[in-house]
Structures are given as C-alpha cells and as structure tokens.
Simulated scan of single mutants.
Amino acid sequence: MMASSISRFAPLPKFPSRPAVLLPRVPGPKLAPFTPNARADIEFVEFLGRANDVDSQVWKVKINGALFTLKAFYFCHSETLRQNQGGDLTRPLANSQLYIDYFDPFNCECRAYGRLKERQRENLAVKAYGYLLLTPQQETELARKVTGNPSLLSHASAGTLDGDNFWKRYEEHRGQPVRAIVKELVSGKAPNPHDAQRMWADLDNLHSLGIFVRDTHGGNYLGGKLVDFSRSWTMYHPALVHIGENTLQLLMLEELQQLLDYYYELANSLSDEIDVPEDLESYCSGQIAKYKNLPRAYNWLKWDKNAAAVKAHVESELYQEPAL
C-alpha cells in the first residue's frame, strides 16, 4: 500500500538545490527522479520530435552509455493554463502554482506515468524512467542545436523573462530549471496489425486507472503505444471533479474520435489486416453516453493509507473559498 500523498504545496526546486523528491508536489501520483539528484550527463544525439511541437523538445539521447528518449518541456505561464486548461472549472484553484501543478504538460505526464507505476501497468504506454532537470549549460546547448545560433543565451539568467525566449520562460519561472522526462527509446515505425488492435483496449484500461488522455491522435502513438500524456488529467484532478458532466462527455467523445480516426487511417494503409473496434465506433456514433469506464470514477483514495487526511487536505487547500 502506498504512503500518504499529502505533501507541501511548493514550486519546482530552484538551482542549485538537489531534489530527491517526487513531482509534482501535490496529492496524487508522482514521478521519481531518474537519478538521485535529478541531474545527468546527457549527449543529445538526434532530434525525434516534430517541428510544430508546442510543449516540448524530444530527442534521442545517450546517458551513461545507454540510449533513451528525452522529452524536455517548455514552460507555460500559469495564467495561460488557467484560461486555456482550467477555464471550465466550476471551482477556481486557490493560487497560480496549482494551475501549473495540475495543467502544465510536464506535470500532467508525471502524474499519468506515476499512476502507471504505482498500479504496475507501465505496459499501457511507452515506459518512462524518471525526470531530469537540465543544467543551464545543457538547456543552452540544446537551444543552440535547434536554432543553429552558437551565441544564443537561453538559460534562466537572461534579462527580461516575458516568454519570448527559446524555453518560453516568464518571470514566474526565473531560476527554475528546464524539466525533462527520460523514456524508453522505441522505433518510429507504423504499428503492425497486432499492435494496432490493442490500442483501444489500452486506452480503456488507462481510463479505468483514472487517466483521461485527451490527446489520442495518431502522432501520439509509436508502434501502437501511447508516447504522450502532456494533456492528460489523472485522478485526483480538479478538472475531472469540477467540470460539468456534459462538458466532460464532449471531451471524452473528442478523445475517442481521435483514436477512431487513427484506426481508419491504419485500416486504409494496412488494408483488411486490421479491424476497427465496433464498440469504439458505436460510442463515436451517438452512443457516447453509454460509455461507463470514466476516469473520474476512479477511486483515487483507495490506495492511500491516510485517505481521510488526504481528502480533507485537497478540499481545504486546492480551491478558492466561494464568495459570500
């Protein structure tokens, strides 16, 4: 049984601290550091991402002689997260840091992968090994590789931090390191029919673990496995509790439709070798109300030995008091 998930609300540790902590520092699932101090010597080998990626830089890297995928995340301003991700909340969060803790793409991935690890279901996605914090030298090196500008300065000591820099850092991020997640390096080839068939079952299982992926287009799969949880909500999550049922149902339909569209794409390219799941088609064709495996139904307190205290902590610390 896992230990209590209560922890002090606090932003990401700043340089030169040596964090031996799990992130994010709010109740619920968390991801451990890849190394004890979350630092590592990294050789950036090859860019693996897409030119239009808005959340991160994805690279093939070498760490201690082994090859991995490294996903290094841009920063997001808390106000942008509040408006774009938390705008449908019926109960606003108590402070700007909480919008970062629950809606920032890095934290969304940490929480989803943390749930997979704690429930021993890492087979449902490409595996994540832990997070790293880049040094100023590493973040500058990576920015120079991408831009081709050898004199580029991109680290936290820059003058005015208004988001108009490589890592999209604002003043609220000053002194905070670039965050990255070390993942399994997998082939970019299209899935075979066997791998493709399991995608719907995997997504259904993710829902049963309280993980609402929300972004299931074909570009987020490699070999039939999900590689991206940067838009995911994992119970306990304010959006899964304090967004209306109709809105959540529409979001669920959108998520399922993305996967269905990917199945159609694969069916066209693989001819008759793949069967599109009939129940998935049914849910996307006017029967979404019949889908019962909803992430918000996950019993997030079941595995916490101090459940009552955690629940009270969430209710007292997360939300603004209603206006009188």
Rank of each mutant, 00 (worst) to 15 (best):
N123M: 04
Y262I: 03
W200H: 10
T216C: 15
L31Q: 02
P191H: 08
I63Y: 09
R169A: 14
P16V: 01
K145T: 04
Q120V: 10
W200R: 02
Q320Y: 03
A66V: 13
S187W: 07
H242G: 00
H313F: 13
E245L: 05
L324E: 10
T216H: 00
Q85V: 14
A38H: 08
L133R: 02
K305Q: 08
E184I: 02
S230E: 08
L134Q: 04
C108E: 01
R8A: 08
K168S: 07
K189V: 13
S4T: 09
L259I: 03
S269K: 12
D195G: 04
T140S: 10
K14V: 15
R179K: 15
M2V: 10
K292T: 07
G159M: 13
K62H: 10
R91T: 01
T69C: 15
E315T: 01
R169M: 15
E109W: 10
T234P: 01
G65F: 14
C108D: 05
S316I: 04
R25T: 13
N123A: 10
Q85F: 07
K145A: 13
R82A: 14
H207S: 01
R169D: 08
A72L: 04
Y298I: 04
L152K: 04
L116I: 05
I211R: 07
L116T: 05
A297E: 08
E278F: 11
S269Q: 13
Q138I: 09
N95D: 11
L48E: 08
S56F: 11
L133E: 12
K302H: 12
R179I: 03
L81T: 03
L98E: 05
P295C: 00
V45A: 12
N149V: 08
K117M: 08
M1V: 14
L260C: 05
Q320S: 08
G210R: 00
I243M: 14
E139F: 01
H207L: 00
S96N: 08
L280K: 05
T90R: 13
G223R: 12
Y298W: 09
A158K: 15
L142Q: 10
V58A: 14
L301N: 01
S269L: 10
K292A: 12
P191K: 02
P277N: 06
S282A: 13
V178I: 14
F212T: 04
L226R: 03
A308D: 14
F44Y: 15
S78K: 00
R50Q: 13
G224F: 09
L152W: 08
P11D: 09
V186F: 07
P19T: 01
D228T: 09
T35V: 06
A66L: 12
A180I: 04
A10N: 10
F15D: 08
S187V: 04
N64Q: 12
A20C: 07
N268V: 06
K145R: 15
L22P: 00
D164I: 06
K189C: 13
F47Q: 06
N306K: 14
F44T: 01
E315S: 07
G49Q: 11
S271Y: 08
M252V: 03
G86H: 03
E273N: 06
H313C: 06
S154H: 10
P36R: 06
D55S: 13
G224E: 04
A72I: 05
K292W: 05
I42W: 12
N165Y: 12
S269M: 10
L226D: 01
S56C: 12
V213W: 03
